[in-house]
Amino acid sequence: MDFFLELFVNGLLTGVLYALIALGLVLIYKASSVLNLAVGEMALLASFVVALAANFGAPSWLAILAGVVVMVAFGYFVERLAFRPLIGQPVISLIMATVGIALFLRGIYFILSNKWPVYLVDLGLPVDSLNLGPVSLLSSSVVGGLVALLLFGLVGYIYARTRTGLALRAVSDNQTVALSLGISIDHLWAVVWIGAGLVALVSGIVWGQRIGVQFGIAILGLKGLPVVFLGGLDSMVGALLAGIFIGVAENVVAGYLDPLIGGGTKEFLPFFIMLIALWVRPYGFFGREIIERV
């Protein structure tokens, strides 16, 4: 039972971080119906920048600020250079543009990391473990999970309560109508790309502490896909719950199954869940209802 509890709680923390990656996907999808396939590379870029700044001797706050500056600039230029010229083109063109962005970021990462190898985001957070009864946790994981939850709360508040949030919901409902009301789509796209950049920054810092700054962070972006397909591409609540579900499921199942089959469960289980979700609920469990009047 203790073993199960430990797997469960650790899965919970991993799950919140998967949810964070999924949030980066949902933000972009809601505003433009585009699947942002560069989400993992964005986190990689962010973690590299922060680790590099810290490596050059910047204090934690300055390293994080460097990350903020780079990700805001990145979001702004993606909208300006890649998305705005494609207004009116089919969605698939925009999705391919995100693939282009992903490959571009990979290239940048390999070039820069050859020149300045960095291995870990070290912001001086405590690395000891917390012992809660039978469960022991890395305190940095707990901090990461809490920050992720806070970010979800913040984005949810912006969507529900602010003027920009209302405009974002209008755009995600019907782009043409939103445009006819004088909502500037360009401006909102810049807002969501910058937002996704900052979400990627948090992901990048937390994962960079957990697994180190390495190409694996970009691969983690793929783990966002089962989460959003399970939760619904346009649902933040769905992203949070599905992220937690997948984190817990893979951790618990891997804990029992890996010793038997020799490992690898975590690699395939999320995608197996995604496949089943696609069979049962193609729009995900929290995807937007399609209103049909009879």
Partner: peptide, 30 residues
């Protein structure tokens, strides 16, 4: 729109997932 020309699109151009009042609020976006 800011200058004072607003088009009401053909068909049911409402924002379906927003409430009636939210629809009206979005109308004042500019």
């Amino acid at each position: 729109v800011r200058m004072g020309i607003v088009q009401v699109l053909e068909g049911r151009g409402v924002l379906e997932h927003l409430t009636v009042e939210e629809n009206l609020l979005v109308g004042a976006h500019t």
